[in-house]
């Protein structure tokens, strides 16, 4: 065990894991985080806490992580490279670890151009792969500069993201390999809205044996409307939405119900796919639907390990 988190235990014991996601609010109102925590408790092994997602200022991921711990949930702290240099990031890793947070997810971060502070300066002192390497060094007792820690190193289970829907397609697998080489233990994929493309990517992943080196959780996002699906297909860079999926939503009488049904089918499909260690459910601004999806997809109750 590297960190001994629920998530790590679940995956290392070979169980199909479930992670969720909570987006902290644009305020210091911790009750909002607690509300989501109470609603989602017990349905997932751990929950990602986004780090100023889409470059919009929000309650910090570590702050929200503390609220989750108090509510008895396990956090996955997201850290993006956009806002902090290697000094600040390492400091935050130590802080998070001191508070008992064990899962940390390394991301490049959305460019600030799309956020609410487009005139700000970005940092990108290190990139996401270098960040994984730094965290791997830290848990082995070394700072990024090579200096040995005088005290006990932080226990971290290192996560990363992979986007099978961005380009160049084949290089996406190489990039996952680089993340595994850097020391990442698990990877959550971009939400799958084009299963065919995802399967092709997984074939390449398996051909290189990567699924044996890094735990892969397939990203699931239930769609709430046809409009949202069309928007994602057209305007979100690095996103693919299959025509079949749009057609199903378009034809459905109850679009939301159909969105949930599709998500459930996707989970069932992923459960059978070789090399998939679990699912990461991102119900953006629709957190309350997570229990229903988990229940109906046979993911509840969570096994105790």
């Amino acid at each position: 065990m590297k960190a001994g988190s629920n998530l790590e235990k679940m995956m290392e014991s070979g169980n199909f894991a479930v992670t969720g996601e909570i987006g902290p609010p644009k305020s210091c109102n911790g009750e909002i985080v607690r509300h989501h925590a109470k609603m989602l408790k017990g349905w997932c092994e751990s929950f990602n806490l986004t780090d100023n997602q889409t470059a919009i200022v929000r309650l910090s991921s570590i702050g929200a992580g503390q609220l989750l711990l108090e509510e008895g949930l396990e956090p996955n702290i997201q850290i993006v490279c956009r806002d902090r240099n290697r000094i600040a990031i390492q400091s935050d890793v130590l802080g998070a670890s001191a508070l008992g947070m064990k899962n940390i997810l390394c991301l490049s971060g959305d460019h600030q151009k799309f956020g609410n502070h487009p005139t700000s300066k970005n940092v990108y002192d290190v990139d996401s792969i270098q960040l994984i390497k730094i965290l791997d060094g830290m848990r082995n007792g070394y700072f990024a500069n090579g200096e040995e820690m005088k005290d006990e190193p932080p226990k971290i289970y290192i996560g990363c993201a992979a986007n099978p829907f961005a380009d160049p397609f084949e290089f996406r697998v190489t990039r996952l390999e680089k993340k595994a080489d850097a020391g990442a233990d698990f990877c959550q994929t971009q939400c799958i809205l084009d299963m065919e493309r995802f399967e092709k990517w997984m074939e390449l992943v398996r051909a290189r044996g990567l699924h044996k080196r890094i735990k892969i959780l397939g990203g699931i996002t239930p769609m709430k409307s046809v409009k949202a699906a069309r928007y994602m297909k057209k305007f979100v860079a690095g996103m693919m939405v299959s025509d079949d999926l749009i057609e199903r939503l378009d034809k459905a009488e109850d679009v939301k119900a159909e969105g949930v049904q599709i998500a459930i089918e996707q989970i069932e499909h992923l459960k059978k796919m070789e090399g998939i260690a679990g699912v990461h459910i991102m119900a953006i601004a629709w957190e309350e639907i997570v229990p229903e999806i988990c229940k109906r997809a046979g993911l509840a109750p969570r096994p105790q390990v």
Partner: peptide, 15 residues
């Protein structure tokens, strides 16, 4: 745009 050294990031599409 992000000056990264191990790209491309997940936002690269159609070059």
């Amino acid at each position: 745009s992000k000056s990264i050294f191990n790209g491309p990031c997940g936002g690269s599409q159609n070059g």
